[in-house]
Amino acid sequence: MKPKLRRSMLFVPGSNTGMVCNAFIYKPDTVMFDLEDSVALSEKDSARMMVFHALQHFTYKDIETAVRVNPLDTPFGLLDLEAVIRAGVDIVRLPKTDTVEDVLDMEREIERIEIKIGSPKKTMLLAAIESALGVVNAVDIARSSTRMMGIALGAEDFVRDLHTQRTKEGHELMAARNQILLAARAAKIGAFDSIFSDVKDKEGFMHEVDLIKGLGFDGKSLINPNQIPWLHSAFAPSQKNINWAIEVLEAAKDAKERGLGVISLDGKMVDAPVILRAEWIMDLARASGVLGEEQ
């Protein structure tokens, strides 16, 4: 199956009603409602209820939804799961994933709730890695569950754990980014980068996006809707890539029509992963608006 585009994951604090109601307007690839760190302790219940309803609203029917729940060792974690699984969320984002156990615990609870309510849906998992221990265990975490659709770096907590802080150059995150990317690719799941918190600094943001795109990340978490078009434009494929993809897909179509088992282009054999890659580039091109619908 060809992978879904997940360039932008927009963080939406569950306690910010205006954002909850309007986030879909900005068309991020995934809306990620947050019930964890951006929500004050006194508003955990109200944010949960708001997200429970938003997930079921028609404005979020055609957009992928994720919810960052509270850890299971807090009084809120299980209540969050009960609410969001019932509301039919696509992805549960596990905060502060340090070990495989963290994933398995969460998976067990999700499964229990799905069975209890008779849900046909298999909720996906996205593990946020936010500590040195998590980075060291990234390979195992990435492979720990069939529900795992990706792993993401949570840089703010991670740098604190490393006893350093974030810089524009991002040297402090190099090892973690590489490890997370390798772990994700080895497990054939997505790799997602952390947020960039200075919403006014477009230059710094674009610099970071170029870096993570170059490393191979699928996308990035965002905290401000303004960052969405910036990110999407940076992720738009080049005309050269688009041309290549068009040719590959044409060759594939041609081979299928002629009943040929082997597809070739310019004398080279084209295998399944290459076709998937070409399809993905075309999806990306369409989503980036650099291509008309007919192509």
Partner: peptide, 29 residues
């Protein structure tokens, strides 16, 4: 100027708080 579901969510949260109930009966919400 709240959407329909926002009103619903706020009323439900206020009632749950008034009842002192942490875990609601999701099936009636």
């Amino acid at each position: 100027g709240a959407l329909d579901y926002v009103i619903k969510a706020r009323v439900q949260t206020a009632i749950l708080r008034a009842l002192g109930e942490a875990e609601p009966d999701w099936s009636v919400l």
